[in-house]
Amino acid sequence: MFEARLVQSSILKKVLEAIKELLNEATFDCSDSGIQLQAMDNSHVSLVSLNLRSDGFDKYRCDRNLSMGINLASMSKIMKCAGNDDVLTMKAQDNADLVTFMFESQNQEKVMDYEMKLMNLDQEHLGIPETDYSCVIKLPSQEFARIVRDLSQFGESVVISCTKEGIKFSAGGDIGNANIKLAQTSNVDKDEDAVTIEMQEPVSLTFACRYLNSFAKATPLSPQVQLSMSADVPLVVEYKIGDIGHIRYYLAPKIED
């Protein structure tokens, strides 16, 4: 028996918005420790890794490990039926081919049950090596979304360069060139407005804009985003999900041919 209750169903709605542009389907691995998802996009350029810890749920029970193969477009249709203030409960029997999403209004006067068929998906998990990143940058998530959106107008790629002085995003193409520099903030009223840089060595890497734009769909999950970079390895873009977990996107760089 698997049962997970979340008073704020809006969290799962936002998680789905954050992954459904990159992934058509994915396996939700449920265990005693929580719900995990790891999947590559169709082109195998990026990897999504989601972790929702069991202690972050309002109620959580998972007697046996369960892998739920889910069509994300179908799940998205169901999640759209939930009000932001509804209480969500996901339920599945052991070895089930169905998962039930139950939404209850706050006053419990309306109860909705949606059953969704599960799929058998080939499970392919990648091992992600522990890495000490040369640069770890934290910045407001809305700022990051704005920058990648703005630079996408100039070209398919963006160069992200980090030095002690700051972080620079650059793009160029037919219409010209664009550079956006952010310096580390010295003092801000709110922590979420801060730009912080921890740098061991300067790094400059090139990435495809379209993936960064897809990652930015996670913006509503967190006021801050963390970028981790080292030479010649994938970028990590991480959004914390309240007290319950995180979503990480790994993006392979563009390298000289």
């Binding site: 990648l126 760089p253 563009k254």
Partner: peptide, 14 residues
């Protein structure tokens, strides 16, 4: 010219 790398060339299958 830059070429897009694949994520599988950095992370190996478990």
């Amino acid at each position: 010219k830059n070429k897009q790398a694949s994520i599988t060339s950095f992370f190996t299958k478990k």
